[in-house]
Structures are given as structure tokens and as C-alpha cells.
């Protein structure tokens, strides 16, 4: 765990509560820059909660609160003066179920850019070009270039998820959080998303929550294993290089989970 001095995002002694229930207990983890970090663990271990705390999406649940600190560029994102909207502009999110806006494919990508103050400047791409760039980066351009004006909901599930990724990168974030991005997709669409994640890692820092251990092993550089403590709150068991976690885990619980003895 100490192999990373400072990461893009540093989570220190974070506990997250829903009302009185503690969903995540004392997690300390560093998210390294330009790498893919996978959060794995059994259902209910708080990995999604932890992920959503990284860009303050948990703020939307009224009963939740957090202890500890999460720093981004050395600044605590939960400090009173920090606007969660600003945090989310730098740390974007892709959800489990593809959720494109019920608008045109073009608008899905352009809206995020527009509300983030996209302005046409000399030597920079126009909005149309920017939409094209984002769709190319999300490996969707070839499939949709002739129907940019049709509804985002008319696409297949895998295409919708890639549209959501294009939408997320259109706001130029530094970090993209992905909450089980392929769990609602078929194997072929899943494979495409995984390939896409590898390509995006060159430009973005990615944190991905997944149920699918093979997926974590295939795509991630680092893996964090979380599990449920005896009081049902999530704890971080082990965090390290993905090959090391999968071939030579330190903790017996990690080994048990990976070899399929529980979870």
C-alpha cells in the first residue's frame, strides 16, 4: 500500500455513513495518475459507495455523511468551501446502467461540454468537432456518424454505454469513475468497453468498480479488494498491483475471494 506516495486522489481514513449505518470503514487508498484502479469485492462491501464518494455523488443521498479526507490535487474535496459541482467537472462518472439523456446523440455529448463553458476559440475545435473527437475516443463515431440527430435511446445497450463514456469525456475530466460499466452488457459489448478503458487510460485516470474478477484482472493496473467486516461495514483488505493481487495475495480473505471460495 505504501508503494504509492501520492496519487491523483488520496483517500485517508474515510468512513461513510448512511444515517447511522456505516457503509465504509476507515479506508485509506491512493488512486495513481493515468492508471486504471479496480475496486473489487463481494456485494454490499461498500465499493460503489467508496467510488461515489470520490466525486461527491453521495451528497445526493440526504442521509449520507463522510468522515476522513479525500484530497484531489492536494485539496480536500469535502471542505466546506468546495463546490461539489466543480469536483464533478473534474471527476466524471459513468454508471452501471447506461443512462443517456432522452435527446439526440449529438446533444448527449454536446450538452456536458456546453454547460461546462465550452467556447469556440481560435485554434481549438468547434463544438461539432469536439463532439466528433469525443465520439471517436469513445469508439462510437463510426457507428453513429450518420445519425447524430437520432435519439440516444435508439442505440443498443453497449452503444449507449459508450455514448455515456463519450458524454463523460466531453467535459474534459481528469478522472473518470466507472460503476460496474459493463454489468448490464453482453460479453461482446463488455469486451469493447474494456478495450476502450485501456485506450482511455492513456489520457485519463480511471477508477472502476466491478463484480467481475476476470474483468479486473484484464483491464486494471491496480486492484483494491474490499470486503464486509463483521459489523457489515466495508473495509479495505488489500491494495496493490493487479498481477500481484491475483497471483500472490497477502491476505487470506483476498485469496479466498479470488479463488472463488466465497463472494
Amino acid at each position: 500500500m505504501d508503494t504509492f506516495i501520492t496519487g491523483k486522489i488520496d483517500v485517508k481514513h474515510v468512513s461513510i455513513y448512511y444515517g447511522k449505518f456505516r457503509a465504509v470503514k476507515d479506508v485509506t487508498i491512493s488512486i495513481p495518475d493515468h492508471k486504471i484502479t479496480a475496486l473489487i469485492g463481494p456485494s454490499g462491501c461498500g465499493k460503489s459507495t467508496l467510488l461515489r464518494s470520490l466525486n461527491r455523488m453521495n451528497d445526493l443521498i440526504p442521509s449520507s455523511h463522510i468522515e476522513g479526507s479525500i484530497t484531489f490535487h492536494g485539496m480536500d474535496i469535502y471542505e466546506r468551501s468546495v463546490d461539489p459541482v466543480e469536483v464533478r467537472r473534474h471527476i466524471g462518472m459513468v454508471f452501471q446502467k447506461p443512462n443517456p439523456f432522452p435527446r439526440s446523440i449529438y446533444e448527449n455529448v454536446a450538452w456536458g461540454a456546453r454547460i461546462n463553458g465550452f467556447q469556440q476559440r481560435l485554434g481549438h475545435p468547434s463544438l461539432d468537432e469536439w463532439v466528433e473527437i469525443c465520439l471517436i475516443k469513445a469508439a462510437l463515431w463510426d457507428e453513429v456518424k450518420d445519425k447524430l440527430r437520432s435519439s440516444g435511446l435508439s442505440l443498443s445497450g453497449g452503444q449507449q454505454q459508450r455514448l455515456c463514456i463519450a458524454r463523460a469525456i466531453a467535459t474534459r475530466p481528469e478522472v473518470i469513475l466507472m460503476d460496474e460499466p459493463a454489468s448490464a452488457l453482453d460479453p461482446i459489448a463488455t469486451l469493447r468497453i474494456e478495450e476502450l478503458m485501456r485506450e482511455l487510460a492513456a489520457e485519463f485516470t480511471i477508477v472502476v468498480v466491478t463484480h467481475n474478477m476476470q474483468q479486473a484482472a484484464r483491464v486494471s493496473d491496480y486492484t483494491a479488494f474490499l470486503t464486509m467486516d463483521h459489523d457489515r461495514s466495508g473495509i479495505l483488505v488489500e491494495h496493490g498491483n493487479t498481477p500481484q493481487i491475483f497471483t500472490n495475495p497477502v491476505d487470506s480473505r483476498t485469496e479466498g475471494y479470488i479463488t472463488g471460495r466465497f463472494g
Binding site: 466525486n55 455523488m57 459541482v85 464533478r88 467537472r89 454508471f95 443512462n99 456536458g112 454547460i115 458524454r167
Partner: peptide, 17 residues
């Protein structure tokens, strides 16, 4: 659907947007 609100917040939209 709440997923729509989350999608919007997730790309940095304000509440009013």
C-alpha cells in the same frame, strides 16, 4: 428517473441546470 439526474450531476451540472 433518478438515473437521469445522476447522469446530469455526474458530468458536473448544477442543480438548476
Amino acid at each position: 428517473p433518478d438515473t437521469l439526474r445522476q447522469a446530469s450531476y455526474g458530468i458536473g451540472a448544477t442543480r438548476w441546470q
